[in-house]
Design a protein around this nucleic acid. Structure first.
Lengths: 246, 246
DNA sequence: CGTATCGTTGATACCTGTCAATCTTGGTGG
DNA sequence: CCACCAAGATTGACAGGTATCAACGATACG
């Protein structure tokens, strides 16, 4: 007696080729239970500049970034914006339980995400405490990162803000490179998929100040601009020093 | 045959008279399971100015504030400090799993806390998913609050920072007042147990700027200073307006 | 009552925001 | 293919907000 291939198997296959399957939150479920998530997975594509969700949307519970960069930001009613987080591949927004978001998410590049409807996801959470545990660890880490960011916003000069931001982005970029690239001994080069204005929105600065500061870093020899968004860190130590005390 | 009163019962009695028992995280465990936490509870007292934990301490997993105010802050190696959170009664630090803290905690007033050793607490978490769930919700909320704070740090002027901070403190203070006080129609008055310097460390400002801004708010009639740390909000609407757009 | 800490106020400097002009880049359509 | 256009980036001039430095006053505490 033959059975048709189950839908689960089809979905699982998508997960098996997922580039972030080993590092994203869903990896905490073992082979036998991963279908619990993959069953309700929704793949989505967004073009550069598109909104993933808005301030009051009842967005999906969790969105895992598969490719691209997402910016999370808050807006004051007079238009001032503050970017409060950046999501890179394998990062996820953790907004379970909150019903409405209290931030906006926009695609900084073309973006591919894998998201989960709120109610179904929360149901899976109840059945898999290890998933909720992983989400808690991740959120605690996000909180600590947000607080580090607060130090940068509140206590650093424009020069220190930009330099420490670039150092962090360079480091993060190194971590996500494939082993081959990492072994090749060369100066760290990375793509920062943000406009000068967006960098300013990250750091509480204006476009002009960001531009001037980058110019200064370039003239001082700490960085080199391959193109507007591609940065080579010529002197990592100098950049770290200019980023201010740890 | 008589039995001695069990230790649990003694500990439980302490919880039954705890002023924050209905609002703190431990309230999610029902009567039958609350002993799981109360068994390993450690009560501690700190005097104003004492350190609860330092940057690299293996602090307790969770500390619930019973009375007083705790400030959480980060320090740059050259001494610059940024306060990244304030804990009031029933609030708790959520640092499970992280082994070492990445911030300092200091008593802003005399403080009474109820804390739980890391390993034992994590054991209880594994046995009580509803507790871990509550901790996750709390941490997600903390994250959102931290991000709101980032907007204030990055995108508001000194005047807006101070005014919006006072509005928030006044509102929080109203919420924790007993019903009788809340019904009494009078202007909101609250105690802000922070020095001018500490307010500055919250908002990314210097002592002098905080002092000047408070003077301006006072001269403009938005607030009145009963004493250095006791603030009466004479004109809540004006204060909210000066706090900038929402 | 002396001392230390905190708070206020003033004078000044400088960092960063604002306004404006120009340059570069990328995309679009003739 | 080139001209054109829009958006982003850079640079300059200038002003204003906040930090810095300094002096003094207020308060708490031993």
């Amino acid at each position: 007696m033959m059975t048709l291939p189950e839908p689960d198997a089809i979905l699982d296959r998508r997960c098996k080729t997922c580039p972030v399957r080993h590092s994203a939150i869903c990896s905490v479920l073992d082979e036998r239970h991963s279908h619990a998530l993959s069953d309700l997975m929704v793949h989505k594509h967004y073009k550069h500049g598109e909104t993933l969700w808005g301030d009051e949307d009842d967005a999906h519970a969790v969105a895992i970034v598969v490719s691209g960069t997402v910016k999370l930001f808050k807006i004051l009613s007079d238009g001032r914006q503050q970017i409060v987080g950046l999501l890179f591949p394998s990062d996820c927004s953790g907004q379970a339980f909150s019903q409405t978001q209290h931030n906006f998410a926009e695609a900084a590049t073309d973006v591919e995400i894998c998201s989960f409807p709120r109610q179904k996801f929360e149901h899976v959470l109840r059945q898999h405490p290890e998933l909720e545990h992983a989400l808690l660890e991740k959120t605690l880490n996000d909180l600590d990162r947000a607080r580090d960011w607060m130090v940068r916003l509140g206590r650093k000069t424009a020069g220190e803000k930009v330099a420490s931001f670039l150092s962090e982005m360079a480091r993060k970029s190194e971590l996500t490179k494939c082993p081959h690239d990492r072994l090749t001994p060369k100066l760290p080069t990375f793509v920062l998929p943000l406009t000068r204005g967006e960098i300013g929105e990250c750091l509480g600065l204006t476009v002009e100040t960001v531009s001037r500061t980058l110019t200064k870093l370039r003239v001082d020899g700490a960085i080199r601009l391959i193109d507007t968004h591609t940065i080579e860190v010529c002197d990592p130590d100098a950049l770290a020093r200019l980023g201010g005390p740890e």
